[in-house]
């Protein structure tokens, strides 16, 4: 009986893992397809689709745009989130619960609706769509997360250290920049990297709020119009590779360290 359940468990887990990995394996495998259709039969292996991707100016520009938007919007979201978290954790503000609710509210609304709202307001103001508007949208999406993560890690035990710094003559900004921020660095970094990941992969807001300069997901989206294409496989595989590498670095550098120190 015991052996039977063990065998059934292994079989079930195997099947679900197969289901989970099937599309990724197919994606990567047929990115090497020596032919123009990324479906069976596999004609042979070639790297030419990767060459095509790396020499595609539009794709590389989109990649750069994505990185730029992800890093800058996440940094801004972290800064705003940190300041707000500091204010709500260290001072008593009127209607504190309501205002904190406002700060996390965008998390509960579909990104389609956030993007649509911004787009209709931008239409009225006549501001042109650009990477800046995409970045504004991404800060809206990521600020709730940054605020929540950093606010949750602002415990009472750091208050005494901040007070000591103040007693020793540190000004407010010095306390914040030299004492509070370094103490909270693990959660600030976690918030930053999470934001970068979300922004990097975000499609709908970037799609609605950009026009000529687009981010990578939007550029890949426009590649899909030409149907199945090994070049799309190659881009997808590269993005996957970069993301997994990023995940590894994050796991090793940030979360391991924060796990050990706490």
């Amino acid at each position: 009986m015991r052996r039977l359940t063990a065998a059934l468990s292994a079989l079930y887990a195997g099947l679900i893992y197969l289901f989970i990995f099937l599309p990724v394996v197919v994606l990567v495998l047929f990115s090497f397809q020596d032919g123009t259709l990324p479906v069976p039969p596999l004609n042979g292996l070639t790297l030419r689709w990767y060459e095509a991707v790396l020499s595609d100016g539009k794709l590389m520009a989109a990649l750069g745009n994505s990185l730029l938007v992800a890093v800058l919007s996440s940094a801004l979201a972290c800064l705003l989130g940190f300041l707000a978290a500091y204010a709500f954790a260290r001072y008593r503000l009127p209607a504190s619960a309501l205002l904190r609710g406002l700060l996390v509210a965008p998390m509960t609304v579909s990104t389609l609706i956030i993007g649509l709202g911004l787009l209709s307001v931008l239409n009225v103001t006549g501001l042109r769509l650009s990477l800046v508007t995409v970045g504004i949208g991404h800060v809206v999406i990521n600020l709730p997360l940054c605020f929540a993560v950093i606010y949750a890690s602002m415990g009472g035990h750091q208050v005494n250290i901040e007070r000591a710094a103040r007693d020793l003559g540190a000004k407010d900004w010095q306390v914040m920049a030299l004492v509070t921020a370094p103490m909270l660095m693990p959660s600030i970094l976690a918030a930053f990297f999470l934001s970068v990941t979300f922004s990097w992969d975000e499609f709908i807001v970037a799609f609605l709020l950009s026009r000529f300069d687009v981010t990578l997901p939007v550029e890949i989206w426009s590649m899909l119009r030409s149907g199945l294409d090994p070049k799309t496989n190659a881009v997808g595989s590269l993005v996957f590779l970069v993301s997994v590498a990023f995940l590894l670095v994050m796991e090793l550098a940030v979360f391991r360290k924060s796990g050990r120190s706490s």
């Binding site: 700060l103 649509l116 709202g117």
Partner: peptide, 27 residues
């Protein structure tokens, strides 16, 4: 102290108000 607290909280609140609440109300 209270003025200081507002100065820290306002940038984030304004951002959410201006780019989330206003668009939402307009929609």
């Amino acid at each position: 102290e209270r003025r200081k607290a507002w100065a820290f909280a306002l940038p984030g609140l304004l951002w959410t108000g201006l780019f989330f609440l206003v668009p939402f109300a307009y929609m």
